[in-house]
C-alpha cells in the first residue's frame, strides 16, 4: 500500500513537468505580454517604457532560458514572482487557496448531503412522483447556469428577504459562505443525484439482491448492506472527479460574490498576461485534482475489500 502511494506520488512528477512545459509554451506564444494594453490598463505604455519593463521582467531573454529559470525555481517549490503584483506567486496562491478550499468543501457537503439521498430515494421509489420530482430537480440543477442562479439567490435572500449579505468574504464567516457554496454546489449535487440513481437501479437488478430478498431479509437491510456499499464505488468516483475540477470552476461565483479565491486570480492573470501567476494557479489546481483522485483511489480499499493495491 505504502509502495503504491509512493509510486503514485512519483507519477505526479512527469505529469506536472509535462503540464508545466505545455503551459509555458502556450502562454508565451499567445499574442501580447504583460506590457501590452489590456483590460483595466490605464493607458498604452510608450515604446521605450514597454521595452524597459520587458527587460526588468526578463521578457527579453530567449524562451528556453526563461523556461530553465522557471523549472529551477519549480524544483525548489518556488513558483516565481508575479509580473504585475508586488508578491511572489507562492504568497498570492497561499492567500487564495483557503477561501477556494472552503467554498469547494462547503459545496461538496451540500452536493453529497442532498445529492446521495435524493438519488437513493428516486431509485428506490422509481416511477413514483418522488422519483419524478427529484429528477426534475436534478436536471434543473445541472442545467441552471451558475451565474444566473447566484443572481437569483442574491435577489431573493439579500434584496427581498435581507437574510444574507450580497457579497464579500467576511473573514470566511458562515453567512457569507452560504450563497457561494450553494451556487457552486447545486450543479454538482444534481450530477451526484443522477449518478446515484443510475448506480442504485443497476445494483437493484443484480442477482445477489434477488438472493438477499429471497433469504427473507427486510428491504432496509438489503438496501443498507448490499445496495449502499455496492453503489458507493461509482458515486465516490463521480464525487472525486467532480471535486477535483470544482476547485478550478469557482471563478464565476468568485467574481459574482467577490469571493477571494484562486479562480478569479487565474482568470485575471490570463487577461493581464501575468504568466507566472497563471502557471502557478494551474499547477496548484492540477495538484489538488491529482491528490483528490489519489485519496479517492485509496478510499476504494476501505469501501470494497476486494480492491487491493500492491
Amino acid at each position: 500500500m505504502t509502495l503504491y502511494v509512493v509510486k503514485r506520488l512519483l507519477q505526479f512528477i512527469p505529469t506536472i513537468f509535462c503540464i508545466s512545459l505545455m503551459m509555458f509554451v502556450i502562454l508565451n506564444v499567445l499574442p501580447g505580454d504583460a506590457t501590452t494594453m489590456s483590460g483595466g490598463m490605464k493607458r498604452q505604455l510608450d515604446a521605450k517604457t514597454a521595452e524597459n519593463m520587458k527587460k526588468q521582467l526578463g521578457l527579453d531573454k530567449p524562451l528556453h532560458i526563461r523556461y530553465l529559470h522557471y523549472i529551477k525555481g519549480l524544483v525548489k517549490g518556488d513558483l516565481g514572482k508575479s509580473y504585475l503584483r508586488s508578491e511572489s506567486v507562492n504568497d498570492l496562491i497561499a492567500q487564495r487557496l483557503k477561501p477556494t478550499i472552503q467554498v469547494s468543501l462547503a459545496a461538496l457537503l451540500i452536493a453529497v448531503g442532498f445529492g446521495i439521498p435524493l438519488g437513493f430515494v428516486s431509485a428506490l421509489k422509481q416511477g413514483t412522483w418522488m422519483d419524478t420530482l427529484s429528477m426534475v430537480g436534478a436536471v434543473s440543477g445541472v442545467s441552471i447556469p451558475q451565474f444566473w442562479l447566484g443572481l437569483i439567490l442574491m435577489y431573493v435572500f439579500s434584496l427581498l428577504l435581507g437574510w444574507l449579505p450580497p457579497q464579500g468574504y467576511g473573514g470566511g464567516s458562515l453567512v457569507n459562505l452560504i450563497m457561494p457554496a450553494f451556487t457552486l454546489g447545486v450543479g454538482y449535487m444534481a450530477l451526484i443525484a443522477r449518478t446515484t440513481r443510475a448506480a442504485v437501479i443497476e445494483v437493484l437488478s443484480e442477482d445477489y439482491i434477488r438472493t438477499a430478498r429471497s433469504k427473507g431479509l427486510s428491504e432496509w437491510i438489503v438496501n443498507r448492506r448490499h445496495v449502499f456499499g455496492n453503489t458507493m464505488i461509482l458515486i465516490l468516483t463521480t464525487v472525486g472527479l467532480q471535486f477535483g475540477s470544482l476547485v478550478g470552476q469557482t471563478v464565476i461565483i468568485e467574481k459574482l460574490f467577490s469571493w477571494p479565491g484562486i479562480g478569479s486570480l487565474l482568470v485575471d492573470s490570463i487577461f493581464q498576461r501575468d504568466i507566472p501567476v497563471t502557471q502557478g494557479c494551474v499547477l496548484v489546481i492540477i495538484g489538488v485534482f491529482l491528490i483528490v483522485n489519489l485519496v479517492i483511489d485509496l478510499m476504494y480499499v476501505i469501501i470494497d475489500p476486494r480492491i487491493q493495491y500492491k
Binding site: 442574491m154 450580497p166 457579497q167 464579500g168
Partner: peptide, 11 residues
C-alpha cells in the same frame, strides 16, 4: 449585476 443588488440592499 452584483453591484446593482449590493447597492439596492445598501451594502
Amino acid at each position: 449585476a452584483s453591484r446593482d443588488i449590493a447597492f439596492k440592499v445598501k451594502e
